[in-house]
Amino acid sequence: KKVTINGVEIKFNNPEEAVKFALELAKRLNLRIEFHGDQIKIE
């Protein structure tokens, strides 16, 4: 399963991993996060 985070394609074994990764990243950098299907936007 491929997920695009800020235009960067990252391959994950499952979608939950991708979501956890994105949330952790957003929390660490104190950023806002948006989900659009397989696209995750962090700003």
Rank of each mutant, 00 (worst) to 15 (best):
Q39G: 11
Q39A: 13
I33Q: 00
R28G: 05
N6L: 11
N14C: 08
L31M: 13
K2G: 07
I42E: 00
H36W: 11
E16L: 11
A26C: 10
G7N: 05
A26W: 03
G7M: 04
R28F: 10
K20E: 10
E24W: 12
K1D: 07
E24I: 06
A18P: 01
E34C: 05
E17F: 08
V3F: 06
E17C: 15
N6Q: 05
F21R: 03
I33G: 00
F21H: 03
F35M: 07
N13V: 10
K20S: 08
L23K: 07
V19A: 06
I5K: 00
N30P: 05
N13F: 09
N13H: 11
Q39W: 15
K11I: 15
V3Y: 04
N30F: 04
N6R: 05
F21Y: 10
I33F: 05
F12P: 01
K27F: 13
D38H: 07
G37P: 12
K11F: 15
H36K: 11
D38M: 06
E16V: 11
L23G: 02
L31C: 05
R32A: 08
A26D: 02
K2R: 12
L31D: 00
V19C: 12
Q39M: 14
N30A: 04
G37V: 09
E34G: 03
K1F: 15
E34H: 07
F35S: 03
Q39D: 13
K1L: 15
K1Y: 15
I10Q: 03
N30I: 04
I42T: 01
I42R: 01
K20L: 10
E34S: 10
E34Q: 07
E43S: 14
E16W: 13
N14Y: 09
R32Q: 08
L31S: 05
L29V: 04
Q39I: 15
N6F: 14
K2E: 06
A26L: 07
E43G: 13
E34P: 00
I10R: 03
N30W: 07
A26K: 02
I42S: 01
E9Q: 09
E43A: 11
L31N: 00
G37K: 10
E17K: 07
A22I: 15
E9F: 06
N30R: 03
E16Q: 12
E17G: 05
N6V: 07
K41H: 11
T4A: 04
G7I: 09
V8T: 06
N13E: 12
L23V: 10
I5C: 04
E24Q: 07
E16F: 11
L25M: 09
T4L: 14
E17R: 05
E9S: 09
H36A: 11
N14R: 10
L29Q: 06
D38T: 06
Q39V: 15
K2H: 12
N14W: 06
I33L: 10
G7L: 05
I33W: 04
E16Y: 12
L25V: 09
K2A: 11
I40P: 00
I10L: 12
I40K: 01
K20V: 06
E9R: 03
K41T: 13
L31T: 05
N13G: 09
F35A: 02
A18D: 01
G37T: 09
I40N: 01
E16R: 10
V8E: 05
A18C: 11
L25F: 08
I40T: 01
A18M: 06
K2I: 15
D38I: 05
E34I: 10
I40H: 01
L25D: 00
K11E: 15
P15M: 13
V8H: 10
F21C: 09
L23P: 00
I33D: 00
F21Q: 03
I42N: 01
T4H: 06
R28N: 07
F12Y: 04
N13S: 13
R28T: 08
K2P: 06
F12W: 04
H36D: 14
G7H: 03
E43V: 15
N14M: 06
G37A: 09
F12L: 04
R32I: 11
F21I: 05
N14G: 06
L29W: 10
K11D: 08
V8R: 09
I42V: 08
F35Q: 03
E17Y: 08
G37Y: 10
N13D: 13
Q39K: 09
I33R: 00
E24G: 05
F12C: 07
P15L: 12
A18N: 03
F21L: 04
I10P: 00
P15I: 12
E16A: 11
E9V: 13
P15W: 15
K41C: 13
E34M: 05
L25E: 04
G7R: 02
E17V: 07
P15C: 13
L29E: 07
V3W: 05
N30D: 06
I42Y: 03
P15V: 11
I10V: 07
I33T: 01
V8A: 05
N14A: 06
I33K: 00
G7W: 05
D38C: 05
V8I: 13
I10N: 01
K1V: 15
Q39T: 15
K41S: 10
I40M: 03
T4K: 06
V3P: 04
N13K: 11
R28K: 12
V3L: 07
I5Q: 02
E9H: 08
E34K: 06
P15Q: 09
R32T: 11
G37W: 07
I42K: 01
K11P: 09
F21N: 02
I33A: 03
L29S: 03
V3M: 03
A22R: 00
I42G: 00
F12T: 03
K1N: 14
Q39P: 02
I5H: 04
K1W: 15
H36R: 10
V3H: 03
E9D: 08
F35E: 03
T4M: 12
R32Y: 09
K2V: 15
K27S: 13
T4S: 09
E16C: 08
A22L: 14
P15F: 14
V19G: 02
N14V: 07
N6H: 10
I33N: 00
P15E: 11
F35I: 12
D38S: 06
H36P: 02
E43K: 11
E43P: 03
I33C: 04
H36N: 11
A26F: 07
I10K: 03
